[in-house]
Design a protein around this nucleic acid. Structure first.
Lengths: 104, 104
DNA sequence: AGATAAGTTCGAATATCATCGAACAATGAA
DNA sequence: TTCATTGTTCGATGATATTCGAACTTATCT
């Protein structure tokens, strides 16, 4: 599987990021990545959505510049682009990572 | 004009807030309110949208719980619900208020 | 009372989004 | 080589968003 597109830091914009984070399932993915560092895609099947829907959410997060991808065999490992996002939008991700799911 | 609905603090949720902030014009309104404290609605006509579109954006911000309204005569004065939002989502609004418009 | 001003609401048009199943691609195992 | 696994992409569908002009509401001014 070839590596899908990820925007370079210089092309990351705020509104796509906020849009990407405005979905409860995507917030769950982001919070999960914040605690476990790196995850494979299949892990998130606990979200109770289809494989293609999950892939869609991953794509929205990836294209917004929130997560990055490392491919190893057939497994895709995702992680947050924490340092870059902190430089671009200081404090934004940290403020979201700790919010309780009940407030979603 | 009667006072339109605003959610009480206990009903403010994160995803409507992030969605409300994921629009450049609404971000401009929020940043403007952050610097000038209180503004009337007509002020934002520099956004180059119609009166009804402006009113729509204001409504999205209001119903998400981001802004509150004070009516005086025919004028509507809006301001950010900073204290409540800080209690609910610490650091979120401050991190967004300072972002340069070029990064929108 | 009638006119004006400030905003909201309504209805319609267009665009974007979330979701799914099916098909596809790439890797690794039998 | 064939099969299973992991994940993406495509096409369709229903839901939600954005935008506008027109109509409406409320308050103020003459």
């Amino acid at each position: 599987m070839r590596k899908p597109y990820q925007p370079p830091k210089s092309e990351i914009k705020l509104t796509p990021i906020l849009h990407a984070l405005s979905d409860p399932n995507r917030l769950r993915i982001v919070q999960c990545l914040a605690t476990r560092k790196e995850q494979t895609c299949s892990y998130y099947q606990k979200l109770n959505v289809s494989k293609s829907t999950l892939s869609h959410h991953i794509k929205v997060l990836r294209e917004a510049g929130i997560i990055k991808l490392r491919i190893e065999g057939t497994q895709h490992y995702y992680s947050l682009r924490l340092e870059e996002l902190e430089e671009l939008f200081p404090g934004l991700l940290p403020s979201i990572i700790n919010i309780d799911e009940q407030l979603f």
